[in-house]
């Protein structure tokens, strides 16, 4: 914990937020595909893949931050910061591709409480993934400046 706190800076906080929002997106999507309405439809493998990859990258960044600095780690951090927003944006667009039809169908033809309840996690997932992608993009521009130090 001390190491984590010691590694805290704006960038790490943003990546931590990205991780949390990505996790929310993933869990919400799992809830969505488990609902009575959506269980008839195959889930989007691409969305899953990009979300999980993003989670791994975001988690990897935090782990690297906790570990002692070394140049290889620094390169890996840079790569993660550069690639993560794109991965998340791809995830967002795959979810859009996967769910837009059902959003339109439910709002237009099948609007009832059960179907709306089934759809809501998909919307939450979309919002969380979109937010995660924006945060990740913002963090990619940030300098690696620490915001706090904890004395040993």
């Amino acid at each position: 914990m001390k190491k984590l706190l010691a590694s805290l800076n704006v960038q790490t906080c943003l990546l931590l937020s990205t991780f949390v929002f990505t996790l929310v997106a993933l869990v919400s999507y799992i809830i969505n595909i488990s609902t009575e309405y959506f269980q008839a439809y195959a889930p989007s493998g691409a969305y899953f893949a990009f979300l999980i990859l993003s989670l791994v990258f975001a988690a990897g960044f935090i782990v690297l931050k906790i570990l002692k600095e070394n140049k290889i780690f620094k390169i890996a951090e840079n790569v993660i910061l550069a690639v993560l927003p794109g991965l998340l944006m791809a995830a967002v667009m795959f979810l859009f591709l996967d769910r837009i039809y059902y959003v339109l169908v439910i709002f237009t033809y099948e609007k009832n409480e059960t179907n709306m309840a089934a759809l809501m996690p998909a919307l939450v997932s979309f919002a969380a993934a979109a937010l995660a992608s924006i945060i990740a993009l913002a963090s990619s521009f940030m300098k690696d400046k620490e915001i706090g130090q904890v004395k040993e």
């Binding site: 550069a82 690639v83 927003p85 794109g86 795959f94 591709l97 521009f141």
Partner: peptide
């Protein structure tokens, strides 16, 4: 950090455009 941000932004836009194009093809 600016170069990294610009690189990330261009990948971000590319991801949006490539998958967006898939969406428009589907619909």
């Amino acid at each position: 950090n600016l170069m990294r941000g610009l690189f990330a932004t261009s990948l971000f836009v590319l991801a949006f455009s490539l998958v967006g194009n898939l969406s428009t093809n589907a619909y």
